[in-house]
Design a protein around this nucleic acid. Structure first.
Lengths: 271, 271
DNA sequence: CAGGGTGTCTCATATCTTGAGAAGCTTTAT
DNA sequence: ATAAAGCTTCTCAAGATATGAGACACCCTG
């Protein structure tokens, strides 16, 4: 069914199929008709039809005026509940705004899941080239500044576990391609206190990130600034890093992550 | 299965159950254990277990360190895709920010679905009492300013259809309780060009909203300002309404909803 | 260390989903 | 106009699929 390898000992066919339908609709730029759904997923039209009707009843999909299907707003509801538990996002937003005002570049807030980073929030400066990222989307750890920022400050065992899962796809010329190269990069990141993605995810895009540590000094997220390489120049990195550090310090304080007055000063950049 | 009446001719039991699980986890303040899920939904533990495992494989749920379940981040991904189609949200955000800066109260962007309004976005002023709304959540049309704003400018047939679906729950003393009262209120709304919710949703909360009309002059959304009644006083309403009108005018322009130079001036408030 | 609580796993049974196909409907071609 | 092709809706018998009883293992807590 699509690319989805239904591996894993537990199986509920109906669920795999339903999610394949949602996936398909999510990937598609435009709403799809029943026939398209059925043929893309190799389902019989009556089966696809039944699924779509049930999904529609649950508002997981909705029909456009011409009868085609697209994702429903129930998912939006669920999605927001899902991150509500991480109230990180709400708390971080004002700090990110300030950061964007200071740097005039796009800021992202990300968390780590498996071997990918998920974009929890994005703030764009008033006038800037629109970035391609979408809140909720994800990218591999090894080619993002946020990924490297989190990885570098993770407990060694956990970091190793993450690295093991990386598939090391090459996205640009400069993408880190081996575990060893990544380890070297991690070392560098720890030393200077911030991570850099120098066109490793996308040509012409440079990003810089610092981790956000919780009360136990574990990285729970990372904040980054991204912009075109010609604006985010090597010379500017330290200054931007400073803004980032101030930003995460503010978020930490808001989240109650500061365990004491001393801890306040011993965050990532001195680690 | 919970409150969900699985009415509707098409049925896939597994899906109803899976969504009931997600619903349950979404409603719950805290992560739930297998046993709690099973008993709440009256599923056998082995069944509940299998569902949870499959949902976990799809990252629709995830496990906390102590083995309990909560909604997974995949939903966040799907949710953001679902509203991507409405790029309204992205476009509107800068305008909402300005609006909040001007009024120093909370702004909401909402759309209508069935007989409820869904909160697409919320911007809060720097310092303010936190509002209870959650992005992605919904409220009945008849007791919100946004609902009334949209309804008032909807084509009569479509408005009537929506009104027919309203269950007229009473949320406060002042909640509009009958179709007739609502129709009177609609008339009033059309006349003055903006809708008001005067503690009809929640005691002490006053809101004011204007609709956002598309190129065909159909309301596609509404923007509101909400705040405690003692700050959002009756005297201030016209001034706030003005800010709101400027805001939707800006959004309209950004969305390309202005069909001509004249149309630009004949928006809601002159309708 | 007993006891009530969890979560995990297996397998025979029957329930529930499946998909062929027929019929209705809309759009496009002739 | 009318045919033809394509899409959607709906029915129903067959059998693949999910189900749930129950056994087992694993906490905790008293």
């Amino acid at each position: 069914m699509r690319d989805a390898a239904p591996q894993g000992t537990y199986k509920v066919q109906a669920l795999d199929r339903a999610f394949a339908v949602l996936d398909l609709l999510g990937e598609s730029e435009t709403p799809l008709g029943l026939a398209q759904v059925a043929s893309s997923l190799q389902l019989h039209k009556s089966t696809a039809h039944r699924f779509l009707m049930v999904l529609e009843r649950h508002r997981m999909v909705e029909r456009t005026s011409n009868g085609k299907f697209r994702l429903g707003l129930r998912l939006f509801d669920f999605g927001n509940r899902a991150i509500e538990q991480y109230d990180l996002r709400d708390r971080a937003q004002p700090h990110l705004r300030r950061l964007v005002a200071e740097t005039e570049e796009t800021a992202h807030l990300c968390i780590l899941e498996a071997a990918r980073v998920i974009y929890l929030d994005k703030i764009e400066p008033a006038r800037s080239v629109r970035m391609i990222t979408r809140i909720g989307a994800s990218n591999p750890v090894h080619c993002t500044s946020v990924g490297k920022a989190i990885l570098a400050f993770l407990a060694p065992e956990r970091a190793a576990e993450v690295v093991r899962r990386i598939r090391f796809e090459r996205l640009t010329q400069r993408t880190i391609a081996t575990p060893d190269a990544l380890r070297v990069e991690m070392e560098k990141t720890r030393r200077r206190g911030y991570a850099v993605d120098d066109e490793e995810l996308e040509e012409g895009l440079r990003c810089i990130a610092v981790p956000l540590l919780d009360a136990q000094r574990q990285p729970v997220a990372a904040v980054s600034i991204s912009g075109p390489s010609f604006r985010v120049t090597a010379q500017k990195l330290p200054a931007i890093a400073n803004h980032l550090l101030q930003c995460v310090r503010g978020i930490s304080a808001d989240m109650g992550y500061v365990s004491g007055s001393r801890a306040n000063r011993t965050a990532a950049w001195t680690a």
